[in-house]
Write a protein that binds this DNA or RNA. Structure first.
Length: 328
DNA sequence: AATGGCTCCAACCGCGTCGAC
DNA sequence: TGTCGACGCGGTTGGAGCCAT
């Protein structure tokens, strides 16, 4: 039944290899060998395990099927939601997506996407590649806080890839010491697996300020009608206490941004160590400085969801003193 | 019961990346 | 610096199984 060919992968051109479905006997041989010796170099596994397969085939069989921690069975609704959310950000990077679903393989997720999720999204009028609605009504429903310039900027840029989010700041450099309102607005609802308390926490959205000790000044609003989320925080501007907001290093890396992208912003934050951020603010206007602040717990279950809330279709811009400075 | 179309998913293929030399 | 082999990833294929006719 199985074909035996003398051609195939580079790693097995010197031997006759079996292709096609694996028999239970072959599975047993591979399991026995790897559980005893580990896989080591995959190219040497077939010979040492007594299999007429190429190393590549052995690796694939182990990773996608025989590995003891592989999760079998149907995807749950939560897993499905997770896949959609991560795919919105990462696109067809199945291996990266699989890291968010313990026990699931990239191949399994890819198959599930192509056979099931893709069709569901299309049935809902959503382009599975871009996650945009096929109609343009989305553009008119944009729930940004205010200011025509920002809305205009958003409308121009929100379709661009590699943009992260929209920020607006009512910073007034001439009045240091007064409170500054920073808002982050997301034109979609938080994922269902983010608890309502997390939505209001200072760490949610990967958004940090230098004034986290005053959470009472921080608020989040979920507009049920537009399904948008706005998070606001008031922080003092002063020369002695740098103010700012930030996005995490992970987000920087994910979108290929660096600090230069945020020139003109009132501040940025970088993840420098686990659980810390380095806040960096402009070196002018009397409030420049750097400060290590407590931040988000990378890797914790709460923060695990962070990168899922960013949308690839949102713009990344802010303005100060009514002067629009975009960050892209 | 036979058959043809369709779906799903395990496995394959080609390519890019990385490290060793 | 260039070459080679191993590995990992994403796209694609092909066959088993299901369903309608």
């Amino acid at each position: 039944m199985h074909l035996i060919r003398s051609m195939g992968h580079q790693c097995c051109t010197k031997q006759k290899v079996k292709r096609g479905l694996w028999s239970p006997e072959e599975d047993k041989k591979l399991i026995r060998y790897i559980t005893t010796h580990g896989h080591g170099s995959w190219s040497s596994v077939p010979k040492l395990a007594g299999l007429q397969r190429c190393g590549k085939s052995c690796r694939l069989r182990w990773i996608n099927y025989l590995r003891p921690d592989v999760k079998r069975g149907s995807f749950t609704a939560q897993e499905e939601r997770m896949i959609i959310d991560v795919h919105r950000i990462l696109g067809n990077r199945w291996a990266q997506i699989a890291k968010h679903l313990p026990g699931r393989t990239d191949n399994e997720i890819k198959n599930f996407w192509n056979s099931c999720i893709k069709k569901k999204l299309q049935a809902q009028g959503i382009d599975p590649d871009t996650h945009n609605l096929n109609s343009l009504k989305y553009e008119h429903n944009y729930p940004i806080i205010n200011e025509a310039e920002v809305l205009s900027d958003y409308n121009i840029t929100h379709q661009k890839q590699n943009q992260v989010f929209t920020l607006s700041s009512h910073a007034d450099h001439s009045s240091t010491g007064t409170n500054t309102l920073i808002s982050v607005s997301f034109p979609f609802a938080p994922p269902p697996y983010v608890s309502s308390s997390d939505q209001h926490s200072s760490s949610y959205l990967g958004f940090s300020t230098c004034n986290p000790q005053n959470p009472s000044m921080s608020q989040a609003f979920l507009d049920n009608e537009t399904q948008s989320l706005t998070r606001s925080v008031q922080i003092p501007i002063s020369a002695s206490q740098p103010c700012g907001f930030g996005i995490t290093d992970e987000i920087y890396n994910m979108w290929g941004c660096d600090g230069a992208d945020f020139e003109g912003s009132i501040g940025t934050a970088r993840h420098v160590e686990p659980n810390t951020m380095l806040m960096e603010t402009e070196k002018n206007n009397g409030w420049s400085g750097k400060q290590i602040v407590d931040s988000i717990s990378f890797g914790s279950s709460n923060f695990y969801d962070l990168d899922l809330v960013w949308s690839s279709t949102m713009s990344c811009g802010m303005y100060e003193n009514e002067n629009l400075n975009t960050m892209h």
